[in-house]
Simulated scan of single mutants.
Amino acid sequence: MSEEKLYAVKNDEGKYWDFEDQDDFWELTYASCPTTDNELDAKDVINDYGGHIVTLIEEPKKVVLTKKQAEIVENAHDEENPATYIYLSTYLGSSNKEELLMNAYVNGYTVAKEKKYNVKVPYAEGWHFQKYSRESKRGSHNDWKPFPAKDIDSNMSKDLFLFTESEIEHYGLQDCEKEEVTDDEQ
């Protein structure tokens, strides 16, 4: 977070001092320059004309987290001592970093979009494997099976054919050739 600050002087009527013209308090939309980076200038206005300082600082950037890290931060909000919860979550075998999660807790966060891949499996026809879903129209078992590209129905969701790293690991496809799918292709 930047340590640079901007100052505005606001009076009891909700009007702001104009630091460019230095002549009076104005509605915010009419003030030519309602801020200054010099705290002493703002204090001088208060001494001479009244009002109070309003300090403006940059909003900190949100931290980018994985889904697992985001779960830890969300769960910390429900705890009596969030810092201890985050510390224990990072200490007890988690690969998450405590400082990153604390920053996310305080400043907010976004969840990183997982990379997705099409996986080429040598013992299957075509490039695509399909995760089981009701949309598959190809059976009733609860895992996955080969799904040749020639059988792709245009009404099926493209997401059925995309795998995240964790899914590739889950299905034991780490040794298979994979190609990353860009946002344009999803």
Score class of each variant (00 low, 15 high):
8 A>S: 06
8 A>M: 08
13 E>L: 12
14 G>R: 01
16 Y>P: 01
17 W>Y: 08
18 D>W: 03
19 F>P: 12
20 E>H: 12
21 D>I: 10
21 D>P: 09
24 D>L: 01
28 L>Q: 07
30 Y>P: 00
30 Y>V: 01
32 S>W: 10
33 C>Q: 15
38 N>H: 14
41 D>P: 07
41 D>I: 06
42 A>V: 12
43 K>R: 08
44 D>V: 03
44 D>S: 01
47 N>C: 12
47 N>F: 11
48 D>A: 02
50 G>H: 00
51 G>L: 00
51 G>F: 00
55 T>W: 08
57 I>H: 12
59 E>A: 06
59 E>V: 05
61 K>P: 09
61 K>L: 11
62 K>E: 13
63 V>H: 08
65 L>Y: 00
65 L>P: 00
66 T>E: 05
66 T>M: 02
67 K>L: 13
70 A>L: 02
81 N>Q: 13
81 N>V: 13
82 P>C: 04
85 Y>A: 04
90 T>L: 08
91 Y>V: 09
92 L>H: 15
92 L>G: 15
93 G>K: 02
93 G>M: 01
94 S>Q: 10
94 S>W: 08
98 E>Y: 11
100 L>W: 04
100 L>H: 11
100 L>D: 14
101 L>R: 08
103 N>C: 06
105 Y>I: 01
106 V>Q: 10
107 N>G: 03
110 T>Q: 11
114 E>C: 05
118 N>Y: 15
120 K>C: 14
120 K>A: 11
121 V>S: 11
121 V>F: 08
121 V>C: 13
122 P>L: 05
123 Y>H: 13
123 Y>K: 15
126 G>C: 05
126 G>D: 04
129 F>P: 15
129 F>A: 08
130 Q>E: 06
131 K>A: 03
133 S>I: 00
134 R>A: 11
135 E>V: 09
137 K>D: 06
138 R>A: 14
138 R>K: 14
139 G>S: 10
144 W>G: 09
145 K>G: 09
145 K>P: 05
148 P>T: 03
150 K>R: 14
150 K>W: 12
151 D>R: 10
153 D>Q: 05
156 M>C: 09
163 F>A: 05
167 E>W: 02
168 I>R: 00
169 E>I: 07
170 H>L: 09
177 E>S: 12
179 E>P: 13
183 D>T: 14
186 Q>I: 14
186 Q>W: 12
186 Q>E: 14
